[in-house]
């Protein structure tokens, strides 16, 4: 081959092919499994998802009718959880990264406890929420109790992830800001948070997804009632509980459960898209 020969990809041989094969097989396995799940849900439920399903009240324990009150309850619970959890976890992460040395005892204790809390089964948070928010603070079984319980559950996850995000901020930004005479607060609000905006949004989405999918923690905090909540002190049924109830408790609720599952996936896709849109915007 002389001049002008095309550069072709290096040919693989021996172990390379085996490694490539294993990696590809792992990818295919995961892809096919998720594909099958989504395919089944969609095939089963898509026939029920129409305008009426989105806008009507459920009838016959959800066997017929729509899920409007359930979507409303879900969005309420989720909003409370995110609005409470994000500022608190941001504050924790900023305190740990900016005011503690990474090797200090306090910061080690923080990381260990966040790790432990993040892996506590969600039903334990549900029990805590039912005793503390519902009984002790007197919020009862309500959307507020459910939202706060979810907030407590996602705070460790978000705080841990935020801490990682802030530690990865290029040292150049940090040094640059302080060398210009910036005080810590200015650095935090005008450099640290804006420069990490994309990653902050990603973490918020991670927490939102976790909260959206949560069932166990909400069973005895936000309740089962499928009526339209009038305020955050009313109980309200979220989508994941609706799915659980339809598939486990209601004979013949299977197909409607799939329809709700489609909504849940759809809802998360919408929230993610909005998040990604804003994180792109934050970059410019």
């Amino acid at each position: 081959m002389g001049y002008g020969a095309r550069i072709t990809r290096e040919r693989m041989s021996g172990t390379d092919i085996i490694v490539y094969g294993i990696l590809l097989a792992a990818l295919a396995l995961v892809f096919l499994t998720y594909g099958k799940i989504v395919f089944d849900i969609v095939m089963k439920g898509i026939g029920f998802v129409d305008w009426g399903y989105l806008t009507e009240d459920p009838r016959m324990s959800g066997r017929a009718g729509g899920v409007f009150p359930i979507i409303v309850s879900t969005l309420w619970v989720l909003s409370i959880a995110v609005v409470v959890a994000v500022p608190i976890s941001l504050a924790i992460a900023i305190f740990v990264t900016e005011y503690l040395s990474p090797f200090s005892t306090l910061s080690r204790i923080f990381r260990l406890s966040m790790l432990i809390l993040a892996s506590v089964p969600s039903i334990a948070f549900g029990l805590f929420g039912a005793t503390f928010f519902a009984q002790y603070l007197g919020f009862g079984t309500s959307i507020l109790t459910g939202g706060l319980t979810l907030a407590i559950m996602v705070i460790p996850i978000c705080a841990f992830a935020f801490e990682e995000v802030f530690r990865l901020l290029p040292t150049g930004y940090r040094n640059g800001a302080f060398a210009l005479g910036a005080r810590k607060a200015r650095f935090i609000f005008f450099i640290l948070i804006p420069a990490s905006a994309t990653d902050i949004i990603t973490v918020v989405l991670l927490g939102t997804g976790r909260a959206l999918a949560e069932t166990a923690a909400l069973l005895f905090t936000s309740g089962y009632s499928d009526r339209m909540p009038e305020s955050i002190f009313d109980p309200g049924r979220v989508l994941s509980i609706h799915i659980y109830d339809l598939s486990m408790g209601i004979p013949g609720g299977d197909r409607m459960a799939s329809a709700s599952a489609i909504l849940l996936i759809g809802l998360f896709l919408i929230i993610s898209s909005v998040g990604i849109f804003f994180s792109r915007k934050a970059k410019t």
């Binding site: 150049g172 040094n175 640059g176 800001a177 210009l180 005008f190 420069a195």
Partner: peptide
Amino acid sequence: IAMIFQRPNPFPFSIRMNMEFALKAAG
């Protein structure tokens, strides 16, 4: 006593915001 570092370290914002940050930081 200002300082310039080995690697250029502009903040990942607009040129104007980089300059304004310095002015605000200096009070």
